[in-house]
Design a binder for these strands. Sequence first.
RNA 1: GUGAUUGUAGCUCAGUUGGUUAGAGCGCCAGGUUGUGGCCCUGGAGGUCGGGGGUUCGAGUCCCCUCAUUCACCCCA
Length: 430
Amino acid sequence: MPQYQAVKGSRDIFPEEAAQWKYVEGVVHSIASLYGFSEIRTPVFEYTELFQRGIGSTTDIVGKEMFSFQPDPQGRSITLRPEMTAGVMRAVLQKNLLASAPVHKLYYISELFRKERPQAGRQRQFSQFGAELLGASSPAAVAEVISLMMHVFESLGLHGLRLRINTLGGTEDRMRYREALQGYFSKYHTSLDEASKERLEKNPLRILDSKNPGIQEIVSGAPRLFDYLGLEAVGDFEKVLFYLGERGIACDIDYRLVRGLDYYSYTAFEVTSSELGAQDAVGGGGRYDSLARELGSSSDIPAVGFAVGIERLLMTMEKQGLFAALTPDAPLVFVVLQQQEYSDHAMRIAYRLRKAGIRTEVDLVSRSMKSQMREANRIRSSYALFVGENEVAAGQYTLKNLVTSDQTTLSLDAIIEILHEPAMKEYVKS
RNA sequence: GUGAUUGUAGCUCAGUUGGUUAGAGCGCCAGGUUGUGGCCCUGGAGGUCGGGGGUUCGAGUCCCCUCAUUCACCCCA
């Protein structure tokens, strides 16, 4: 085993996989642009209090999953961001962005860090893309954000994803429901597991999405949040559903869906993939009107957003065979030198071809011709250009088409012309 | 943090009740074709059997510890 390995929960992305990332990122950029969202990049670390206030100190993320450290003994603790929303909101407030225009639509593709035990679909360093719509959280705004997310999935060719949606109501709705839930679960106190008992005090809503079968049995008889909603919340939710229906976005209403972060209210949603194993949530989001005030703003800022786990997205795409057509860029021509003495000459030729815009490969480790040809074949080069005694003497080079095995001897200028001919490239590739 | 799982060549894995110099396929390098690839043939390089300790005449095989991996719980994307 090598002396140094990637840190637990982190990994390397080698070229083949990097091409998949590049492809997905490209789609995210273009769809986000289609919906009028602009990219924002924020620092990978923030002062720790930002996440404590923003995400909620009762959550596991803040409680035990943050990578925090003090740059100097007297300094403030800082934390590698475990999610993006708090940082984006901080940036927006810091710059007072909303003063320049009432609505801002931002998206990001970023690395996040959580000190969890790694498992399938869970890394300590992971990536999300997401969007935050600030200044509006009307049903129309919510529908826009969900549409954007689903549009990305569709463009990538994903199928079989399940969108679940729920409304958590307003603060008052939730307070009433919370009391009702506490009353209900208290009756089953002896049957609750440790985690649920703790949640009963801190955040009884989260008992609802417990995976413990015994708990789920109790949950099935619990009062429903929906019955505690005021008219406003119901109307808001119905309007969101109306927009989604109109756009043909299928979703399941799931009254038990409760998102983990404290700042959510009203509409919350989650997208799951059946091909992922235990960590099946690909993305999720919702409304978080109260976050801004939590972070020190003098007033609420209506806001809605989502985040999608890119690793999980890639895993799902891999399972669905969506990368099959992705092929690495093969060089067009491989400069093969006959003997080591022609190396300088071959290097000059390779450079000229590249300056002419032709993808070119050349041997760098003094390999035999046979080996160079094998290499050319291995990396799917379309042509081989030979540099040997005859070529150097005549100033004419042998160009071999590696698909048809035809070869001719021409001046370098003529060769460059041929390699520039698009029809030839197509012919060679097919 | 808890539970389980696996750890033999670059990769995927064999290694029989503990018994000589630890194997295969693929990959890599070289040669068969003294200027030419893909197929085929031949040869070669490459391994502290994750690490440490113990039992034994003898340990890749058994025991203990440790590190790492993977999966699940918790929680979350």
